[in-house]
Amino acid sequence: MEIKVLKNVLDKNKDQAEENRNLLDEHNVKMLNFISSPGAGKTSLLEQTIPELQKTMKVAVIEGDAYTSRDAERLQKFGIPIVQINTEGACHLDSNSIRNAFRQLDLQSLDVILVENVGNLICPTGFDLGEGYCIAVLSTTEGDDKPSKYPMLFRKAKAVVLNKMDLLSYTSFEKDNFVKDIYELNPQVQLFETSATQGTGTGEWNTWLNRMLSV
């Protein structure tokens, strides 16, 4: 006997993500989902971003990490609320873990939540968290073929931050190919070039982000 089901495996996650989105709207909080491979520089970028946002907004961070709390520790210096989610090996955050993280935050007092997803280009892309939009971070050392290999993320991202520009000359990264592939997938995307550890190129990114979060 065959029984038709026709149900999306991720429906449950999507429903909870919509609930999260409504909850954020009610409290007038914006949430961004940062997705990249491990070591692309998400935390370093946040270290450059948080102090800028803090000037005008109340910021919180939700840190997704497979096992450790090292990234959360790095961000403690900013004195902002940080919720650590240990996924115990799972390769992505889901909307339910974000809902649980909200319970540890005072949404009423916040303007922005930055979510640092687990380092991975595939799984986090499929799991809507209820964010306003997602930001892809890619580093020059990973190679210029990543957009065409992981099209879902680069199609979905509102902005792509190309990090480790200071190392560009030591890699085989062809920026022209990368830029062409990115715009092929996502003509409306905002592209930024940074060296987060050096603090270069982050000004333009911060200006754009501030503008996006102020509307």
Binding site: M1, E2, I3, K4, V5, L6, K7, N8, V9, L10, G126, M152, R155
Partner: peptide, 14 residues
């Protein structure tokens, strides 16, 4: 995209 992002249980047999 009109197709290609699915992850759907179409049916079960038993």
């Amino acid at each position: 995209i009109v197709q290609g992002t699915e992850l759907n249980i179409k049916s079960i047999e038993g």
